[in-house]
Design a protein around this nucleic acid. Structure first.
Lengths: 149, 149
DNA sequence: TCAAAGTATTTAACAAAGCAAATAATCGCT
DNA sequence: AGCGATTATTTGCTTTGTTAAATACTTTGA
């Protein structure tokens, strides 16, 4: 009945648009790197957190496990990661970044840092900190997850 | 303060993860709607802003124009949008949501509002407002765009 | 009026990711 | 040993990203 013309702000769209803004220069940087956005995320996560199980990498990189599985082969072929099976649980598969993978990230670290600094300069250091805090906290909220089935 | 953790916080990944958190229940909602995330965005934008040129819809929905073009046919076939060519400039193509499209959105508006309310309750109303403000401002910053060529 | 330049959209082709369902290998527990 | 749960892989299909080129229309200016 009540038809309030609610141009209510949409959190999903706001997040998407902000991400597009930030990713534009990063995508440009990656266009000369030989890896795409998803592979870049995987490498960064492995570099920061060390060897990890596939499912944990998928969770942290926001990738489906099946998508991650599919890209591991190419990543190995490019010499950027290695995989191994821990003896204590042979269902698992542990991914680790190679020296070449680290080198790839470091080769772009200057540009990457420059982009981040520009964002910081344009946006303000404390506001950026606040934003990062809020985003991390948002990640932690407990929404009722739909159990399919 | 302690310098235990060296992990630098990544804005792109933080944005992506926050978005995944928010989108999870929304994707579940959409799984019964017959439209995917992208189509949902297009319909919401048309519903809120009225008939719009394709390129403007693409910009607001964070879609490539070619991707949007590709989905217009199916959206028409499903009876959710109509397109027309304005007489004053026949290069353009204007998209408008149909009654069925509005009905589709309204059929899920209760669930959608519920999700948003839960986010608000878990996260806090003013922090959410702050987050939305920051995200919108981030969108406005002027990063040096790479001119390819 | 006509050609050139500009704008809006379309099309095509390939790589890649989402998604869902089936399969396999392994582990924990009884 | 055997059963159910966990972890990962595979597969088939759909969709989008991406790039480049083509098409259709409009504007500009000689």
């Amino acid at each position: 009945m009540s038809n309030l013309r609610q141009t209510r702000r949409s959190l999903p769209i706001a997040l998407l648009r902000a991400r597009e803004t930030v990713m534009e220069p990063i995508r440009e940087m990656l266009s000369t790197s030989g890896v795409n956005e998803q592979k870049w995320r995987v490498l960064r996560i492995l570099e920061e957190q060390g060897p990890m199980e596939l499912s944990h990498v998928a969770r942290d990189a926001c990738l489906l496990l099946s998508s991650l599985t599919r890209m591991v082969g190419p990543l190995q072929d490019e010499g950027l990661v290695t995989r191994s099976t821990p003896a204590d649980d042979r269902r698992k598969s542990v991914l680790a970044i190679t020296a070449a993978g680290v080198a790839l990230i470091q080769a772009h670290s200057a540009i990457s840092a420059g982009i981040f600094q520009q964002i910081e300069a344009e946006f303000g250091k404390d506001r950026l900190e606040t934003l990062l805090d809020l985003l991390e906290d948002l990640r932690k909220i407990d929404l009722p997850r739909g159990e399919k089935g």
